[in-house]
């Protein structure tokens, strides 16, 4: 088992994101998320634990596409947690915001209180086409109708990897593909990094230390809400905004 001073976190380098949606597909298949149809999107009931938001910037022909992957920020001061009447969502000792499916009674207060729109409600019993029922991940609960779900940082992978590391007497390594969430593994451009923010040798801790300093690119999503997320974003840097010294503004 992971030690109690673990603080799982993610660093997302928006500069590298090409908006390929690989992370989205990986997440959907890893976590038994039902297929989102056009209907569901129109009803605003699509379930995507991670999504890639696209923004257009500028006028044609100088138009630029901006991508930003958004997932549960696993806030340390999460707005979703205090509003749950049954403690179905809470902060665990590994720095993760956790949803306990069998406690949830479906009030949806947490989704209303989340500024990032990363909590999703199962309005219907999830269904898969006949051809896909055999690809469900047995390590992940299929969430039934009437309960909330959200990104778990692929906790089933963390649990399995830490268990197997303990069994074989090995150290957990944040380089291991088995530990990393599905989205991190799927990313072709290494946009996403995952690891223990409390371990000074981990990739994410180094990036966080370097980039959250005054001249770094790091920022939190919507800092005005004071949620202190465990997900750090790194700013996009355009060639055109670089000054003559080669550094950005």
């Amino acid at each position: 088992m992971a030690s109690t001073n673990t603080q799982w976190g993610m660093v997302i380098d928006v500069d590298k994101c090409i908006g390929c949606q690989g992370c989205v597909v990986a997440c959907q298949s890893e976590n038994n998320i039902p297929i989102n149809t056009e209907d569901l999107f129109n009803q605003r009931r699509a379930i995507e634990w991670i999504r890639v938001e696209r923004y257009w910037e500028g006028e044609f022909p100088d138009v630029k596409a901006r991508f930003i992957p958004i997932l549960c920020q696993h806030c340390n001061d999460a707005p979703c947690e205090p509003v749950c009447p049954v403690f179905a969502t809470y902060h665990n000792n590994e720095g993760m915001n956790v949803q306990v499916y069998n406690r949830c009674i479906g009030t949806r207060f947490c989704a209303n209180n989340c500024p990032y729109h990363v909590r999703f409600f199962n309005f219907w019993e999830p269904e898969w086409p006949e051809t896909l029922t055999n690809q469900l991940n047995p390590d992940v609960t299929v969430r039934s109708r009437g309960i909330m779900e959200k990104c778990t940082f692929c906790i089933q992978r963390i649990r399995r990897t830490s268990r197997e590391a303990a069994r074989d007497g090995e150290e957990l390594s944040d380089d291991s593909r088995e530990l990393n969430p599905a989205c991190v593994n799927a990313c072709p451009t290494d946009t996403l990094f995952f690891g223990d923010l409390n371990d000074p040798d981990s990739k994410v801790a180094k990036l966080a230390k370097e980039e959250m300093s005054d001249d770094g690119r790091g920022y939190h999503l919507m800092p005005q809400y004071g949620t202190s997320p465990n997900v750090i974003y790194l700013k996009k840097v355009d060639e055109s905004t670089k000054d003559s010294n080669g550094s950005h503004e």
Binding site: E94, V100, D139, T141, I155
Partner: peptide, 11 residues
């Protein structure tokens, strides 16, 4: 003294 966090078993 095993972990009693919910996500030890429920996920």
């Amino acid at each position: 003294e095993a972990p009693t966090d919910c996500t030890t078993c429920h996920y």
